[in-house]
Computed example of a mutant assay.
Amino acid sequence: MTGEATLLDATSIARELRTVFAARAAEVDATASFPEENLADLRRAGLLGLLVPATAGGIGADLATVSAVAGELAAGCLSTALVWAMHTQQVDAVVRFGSPSLREVLLPRVAEGAYLASVTTEHGKGGHLLSSDAALSHSADDVEIVRDAPVVTGGRHADGFLVTMRDSPGANQQETTLVYANREQLELSATSGWDTLGMRGTASGGLKLRGSVPKSHVIGAPGRFREVALDSMIPLGHIGWASCWLGTARGALAALVGHVRSPRRSKDLDPRSPLVAERLARIRTDLEIVSAYLHRVVDEVTRARADGTPLGTSAQIHLNTLKVVAAEHTYRAVDRMVQLAGLGLGYRRDSAVPLERHLRDLRSASLNYSDDRLLVATGTLTLADSDVRLA
């Protein structure tokens, strides 16, 4: 690592960190521990401020750079990369929708390394993003947060939180407001641990939060979180997740190809074998499909932001499709790698190519904001997109 990142070398620094993170990934997985050392490295490198404008001390990167950095980090440690990608999602919401006073104070802190977590899950509604049960209480100057979330990625380690809540006790569930709170403004208590099949380092246990913040900490218009979600949190979430999953699968394939090309390979992995070549081709095809669609959607969202135009129905379909395609194809690719590598190389936890861990981690992809929910939404949106504007 060479010091604080700039726009030109952010991806190169992420590539350096990839090697460092890979060396720690097995321990993070085995102990289900939050990757604090990795977060400290990201902080020192300036990558927590990747989307913070240069005027506030950050890098001011574009979405293509976010995607590239996420992929590099995920090739080393998917848990770390996903924590970073979700932090970046929160930063984008502050940059695009935060009040001037909040941006003035918070964005320089993020550029210096403050880590932001997302609080959108809720008992009874799961991960449904656009509605809330718990309601904000309003006073003359402040809003009071009382929130119980069953899943908060990296919450116990966060310096600040973006929280969705019903705008008031009299508001309906869809009148959701996004509000920011510094850690020191909240009383926090853990309600559950995080002992899971994969993604064990994200420390996504439950949290209760209680505290008050100034009304200037409301992000976007009160009760209109949907606008923030459609413009910022959904695009950054789906692009970030897809980039992470693809980065992990791509790194796994590179390691497997290196083994197949090595003179120390097993006799079952003869590179001259047509069966080996055919199976590698199918794996590569899965990843090429995800990569092409990811780049296409990044370009679409980038153009819309440059033009100042909202993301329409077709763009929302494309974002949903990206998430589902990336979740399904990257998992299938690694599953195929396990099958090709066999019991000794592909299935053992102590293998030189950690396909077993990648398979467990990527199994979460279809569950991380359920593919079923997104497919239902995409089907409904398809009825409104009569021109069928394909990506």
Rank of each mutant, 00 (worst) to 15 (best):
A5T: 05
S12T: 10
S12V: 09
R15H: 11
R18M: 07
R18H: 05
T19N: 05
T19F: 01
V20T: 15
F21T: 03
A23E: 14
A26L: 06
A32Y: 06
A32Q: 10
F34W: 03
A40T: 12
D41L: 07
R44E: 13
G46P: 00
L48D: 05
L50N: 13
G58E: 01
T65H: 03
V66I: 08
V66W: 15
G71F: 05
L73R: 09
A74L: 02
C77Y: 12
A85L: 07
H87P: 10
T88P: 08
Q89W: 04
Q89F: 03
V91Y: 09
V91A: 06
V94M: 08
V94L: 12
F97W: 14
G98V: 10
E104C: 02
E104T: 00
V110K: 12
V110N: 06
S118D: 07
G126I: 14
G127S: 10
S131Q: 13
A135W: 04
A135F: 07
A135V: 08
D142W: 02
D142F: 01
R147D: 07
V151L: 11
V151K: 10
V151Q: 05
V152F: 01
H157E: 10
A158F: 06
A158H: 09
D159F: 04
F161E: 12
M165N: 09
M165K: 11
P169W: 14
G170D: 11
Q173C: 03
Q174R: 14
T177S: 15
V179P: 02
N182D: 15
R183F: 08
S189N: 10
S189C: 06
T191C: 00
G193Y: 08
T196G: 05
T196A: 12
R200F: 00
G201Q: 03
S204Y: 04
G205D: 01
G205A: 03
G206R: 00
L207R: 12
L207T: 11
L209C: 04
R210F: 04
V213R: 02
V213K: 02
P214Y: 08
E227F: 10
A229M: 13
L230C: 00
D231Q: 14
P235S: 00
P235I: 01
P235F: 00
W241S: 06
W241T: 06
G247Q: 05
A249K: 10
A252M: 15
A252W: 00
A255T: 05
L256H: 11
G258P: 03
R261F: 02
L269F: 12
L269T: 13
D270A: 14
S273E: 00
L275Q: 12
L275N: 05
L275P: 00
V276Y: 01
E278T: 14
R282E: 05
R282Q: 07
V290K: 13
A292V: 03
A292S: 11
A304E: 12
T313V: 10
A315F: 00
I317M: 08
L319M: 14
L322P: 03
L322C: 05
A327G: 09
H329R: 15
Y331P: 01
V334W: 09
R336E: 15
L340T: 12
A341S: 03
A341K: 03
G342E: 11
G346D: 11
Y347W: 13
R348L: 04
R349C: 02
R349W: 11
D350T: 13
S351A: 09
E356L: 04
D361E: 08
R363F: 12
A365F: 01
D371G: 11
D372T: 13
A377T: 14
L381W: 04
L383Q: 13
D385S: 09
